[in-house]
Design a protein around this nucleic acid. Structure first.
Lengths: 345, 345
DNA sequence: CTGAAAGCGCTTACAG
DNA sequence: CTGAAAGCGCTTACAG
């Protein structure tokens, strides 16, 4: 417990030089001969010296850490691979630059802002990721005058001038609808995430537009909280309605899986009676039968891009919006042409 | 960006007192009159002052942060709610004490040790959680002489003297086997996690013992990497074997879900032909049909206990092993009496 | 109860 | 190229 960790002073003593020389040597600054530098580095290595991050933060003014606050319930979060994959991508970039990641889960947006303010006030982080951007996101405004460097994970329209790291969900929606329409579907419904999320709104708008372009009736949209339960309820309601949809598009994986159960309950066969599409392919979408047709994207890559942008921003660079590659639709076993019209009841 | 954050010196100037008085006032130390204290606190509030964590860490010697290094692939991690739920429990405790959580994902155990060493050397953390304890865990030894406070998440036998925060998986295994035996099952197989994990070994041993006690043949155990794919392969192999088991017990949720698909593939009905049990009930186990009989435990509570223990350890208290409450077996629709013997092929 | 001083471990100017 | 000094923002003794 009481193991004393070595400091620059210890190295200086051992090397018979001043602390300053040690600092120069270890930071590859001019000011010491190469021989001294090498010997100092050797001693540092031997002693197992590491820079005290607190002291560095105090002088350099950098915490060498970035923060991520998450406001979804742990249960939802745990089931969707999105977050862990995103974080793993973030960390590949942070690790290279020896940046640390601070994580906190909170219950609401007020707390989210509060945690960011505290982190920044305490100089614990140099910047933050704003996840799950909302259509009218209070955080953007609340953090503006603090000077906290932040990147928004979401579409630029709602980022309020913050660099937006986003993937064009609209394009993916068009791809899905074109595919379903080509199969012959005319009645599509979507079981979406929370309406407040900006990317939900983007998908909503794109869906309406895509249906128009495809010349099919506008799709029904039901918003949920992303849980399997809510997804099941929504799917059930849609499938027992008079003119039931022949294709259901879900905003995450767990809701799509829940829909398989609902279809079974109702004696409907997938994909013969109803086609199902999930958003974000995951291990989950591939262990069920039929495997789910899904949108797939490089989520770790998304995280890496966001981290790169944030570090650049912290470094004082001008960072613009970055659009990630499109998510691609991958047809699996859960999509097929619709049953002959009118749909059998 | 360049918004200057207020320091104690700013407050002292405004209040017309010394920096020391400010420190005393803000930290509720004796040394200032109540009137002065109140006025200083007011000014601090007005200015939006927050203690600079780097300066505090430098003087106090405490980083006010703890670390968690995770060594599972992001994809697996994302699907199992365990981690996010565990972390959410950890954070409820940390938040109360204004401790932060540092998170890092790594590829192997060497890196895991290295990250801990670095964090500790840099004084970024005051302690760490050791997750996924192995039967012969190199980390315990590697970290011992560093003095890094750590709690082991796993059984005491392998914690090497570190405080072990554990839930008695053995007891849950007994409960499952007693239940299955009572239903009439005699051929049980278990699709387990990696053999190297200590909690896997505990379950392995308990399973053998429980079968003996129940007077049924020893259960077959197949070790996997926790992925749905591996689970499906293992389940398939077991179910096409000559004397196939009538009950399958899985070490996580995703593998159990995969087994439903495999059964369907093979034309076997669950639970009529085969019973299925999952470990750790999750949203996932409840959205599939039949719902999976599963072991359920308070995972956030587990995380909270671990965090409490770690903070106590950091505080210099004597911390012993803490056993969490048992996980309980909850029968749902995936378990039933076995089909008449001999099993139909 | 109040003030001036020293120090945590490092970095950044500034003289020799 | 090398040394002594000052300072980051705070806390902890130590005198008045």
């Amino acid at each position: 417990m009481a193991v004393k960790r070595p400091t620059m002073a210890d190295i200086a003593r051992r090397a018979g030089v001043s602390k300053v020389a040690v600092s120069y040597a270890l930071n590859d600054q001019p000011g010491v001969s190469e021989a001294t530098r090498a010997s100092i580095k050797n001693i540092a290595e031997e002693l197992g010296w590491r820079p005290n991050s607190a002291a560095r933060a105090l002088t350099g003014g950098r915490a060498q850490a970035v923060g991520l606050v998450v406001r979804r319930p742990a249960r939802t979060l745990g089931v969707e691979p999105f977050f862990m994959e995103f974080i793993s991508g973030v960390e590949t970039v942070l690790a290279e630059r020896s940046y640390a990641l601070m994580l906190q889960m909170v219950a609401d947006q007020a707390q989210e802002v509060e945690v960011c303010r505290r982190w920044w006030g305490e100089r614990r982080v140099d910047g933050v990721f704003l996840m799950d951007l909302q259509t009218d996101d209070a955080r953007v405004e609340a953090l503006r005058d603090t000077g906290l460097p932040a990147v928004a994970i979401g579409p630029p329209e709602v980022a309020g001038g913050l660099p937006a790291i986003w993937s064009d969900d609209g394009e993916s929606v068009h791809e899905i609808v074109r595919y379903l329409a080509a199969l012959g579907h005319r009645r599509i419904a979507r079981v979406a995430g929370p309406a407040a999320f900006a990317h939900t709104a983007v998908r909503d708008a794109a869906l309406a537009e895509a249906c128009r372009e495809a010349g099919i009736p506008e799709a029904t949209v039901v918003h949920t909280d992303y849980t399997g339960d809510a997804g099941a309820r929504a799917a059930r309601a849609l499938l027992i309605a008079p003119a039931r949809p022949t294709a259901l598009v879900f905003d995450n994986d767990i809701m799509a899986v829940a829909a398989l159960s609902v279809a079974q309950e109702l004696g409907l066969s997938i994909p013969a009676d109803v086609s199902v599409v999930a958003w974000d392919e995951s291990p989950l979408t591939q262990v069920v039968r039929p495997m789910l047709s899904a949108v797939t994207r490089d989520i770790p890559g998304y995280g890496a891009t966001a981290a790169t942008a944030l570090l650049a921003l912290i470094g004082g660079e001008d960072v613009g919006d970055v659009r990630e590659g499109y998510a691609h639709f991958v047809p699996r076993g859960s999509t097929a042409p619709p049953p002959p019209d009118p749909a059998p009841r």
